[in-house]
Simulated assay, not measured.
Amino acid sequence: MKWSEISIHTTNEAIEPISNILHETGASGLVIEDSQDFDAIRNAPFGEVYELNPDDYPDEGVRIKAYLPLNSFLIETVEEIKQAINNLLVYDIDIGPNKVTISEVKEEDWAHAWKKYYHPVKISQKVTIKPTWEEYTPVSSDEVIIELDPGMAFGTGTHPTTVLSIQSLEQYVNKGDTVIDVGSGSGVLSIASALLGAKEVFAYDLDDVAVKSTEENVKLNGLENKITAKQNNLLDNVDMKVDVVVSNILAEIIVRFVEEAWNNLKKGGFFITSGIIQNKKELVKDKLKEQGFEIIAMNEMEGWISIVAKKNS
């Protein structure tokens, strides 16, 4: 089977929404080539276990690559993708150069080529994310290893929004806690929560592909008895009391379920949010405060913001 590689030169800010657009149009084999990765490696506080080839990355911004079947609908599909990306401007998302290119590739060339971008990475004091096909030896007795296979649809778990989320989980999840992960994707935040001590985790995502990916990664880590993955729209019809709600989603979506997060948290519980760009920070903060949350922590990485809010009453 022949495939077309679609390459989009854009900004770090647009990674999440464009990745979602590509996924919704049936694209496979998502690869993110981020020029900021080199600075991140040089400044990494937890050490680094791999090297990047600068030839694989743009001089500035981000290249997002995915793969589409080479068929009679290709032109229409590409046009749909272009239009959807242009529509992101309505939400004040900087799409940068927005240069879209198409090239033909053979299936055997791309089916495994994307794996070269994915290596073990220590992203916090305790947590290291490791692809299933890589060998890795823990460097400390308390190191937590997340086995992750992103398949061809999800990221590798090392994007700044995910790193910020896991660093917050490491700080605020306690042994025996119950956690809700809203928008679970590959399940990496659910898995991190369980490995960091949570006794029970509920992973919700509207996308059934994400639910299946979460279930597969949960099995890889032997956590079937702790993590329940379910298709659900945010926190609709969810009624329980938990210690932590975590969500790595766009700011515009976070503000839609702040009240539901509040209602599902115990007194003293934490709402960990990530996926927030700088110019949406106040939007999320204001909504959290309006609901009654206390903002107890804010962290930034490569232009992305995470906020930790506490329910005190």
Rank of each mutant, 00 (worst) to 15 (best):
V127Q: 11
V242F: 04
L52N: 09
V100Q: 04
Q83E: 09
A153W: 08
P160F: 14
E170R: 13
Q291R: 15
V188T: 02
V62K: 09
Q36Y: 15
K199Y: 07
L250S: 09
Y67C: 08
E104Y: 03
G29T: 00
I295K: 03
D286G: 02
E104G: 04
W114F: 06
V218K: 07
A251G: 03
H9V: 06
I8P: 08
K116Y: 06
A251N: 01
L235M: 00
I6P: 02
G292K: 05
N299C: 03
S28R: 15
N87R: 08
S7F: 06
I180D: 04
H112E: 15
E51L: 11
A192C: 08
I6K: 00
I227Y: 08
K2E: 15
V90D: 15
G183Y: 01
I191Q: 11
V62I: 12
E24N: 13
E80I: 12
A113Q: 11
T11L: 05
K266E: 13
S140C: 08
G47M: 11
I227E: 06
S306K: 08
I41R: 06
K266N: 14
Q83T: 09
K280M: 07
T156W: 11
Q83A: 06
L89H: 10
V218Y: 13
I227N: 06
G183T: 01
T10G: 05
V31I: 15
E147W: 12
T101R: 03
P138Y: 05
D243N: 14
A153D: 10
K175D: 14
V182M: 01
S165H: 13
G176F: 03
S124C: 10
N71W: 02
E5W: 00
S193T: 03
T161E: 06
L283F: 08
V127F: 08
G187Y: 04
A309V: 02
H23D: 07
V90A: 12
P97W: 08
A66K: 00
D37T: 09
F154P: 11
N233G: 02
N221K: 11
N20G: 10
L68D: 01
L30C: 02
T101C: 04
V188D: 03
L30R: 00
E134W: 06
E252L: 05
E134P: 06
S306C: 14
D205Y: 04
A27V: 02
N86A: 11
K116R: 13
T161Q: 04
M240Y: 09
D34P: 04
E51N: 12
I8G: 06
L169G: 12
G29D: 02
A261P: 03
V144R: 10
V31Q: 13
L223S: 09
N12S: 13
E147Y: 13
I227W: 08
I191E: 14
S247G: 05
V246P: 07
N174Y: 13
Q231W: 05
D109L: 03
S141I: 13
I8M: 04
L288W: 05
Y204K: 02
K280I: 05
G155K: 02
N279I: 06
K106F: 15
E48C: 11
I146W: 07
I75C: 08
T11P: 06
L283K: 12
E76I: 02
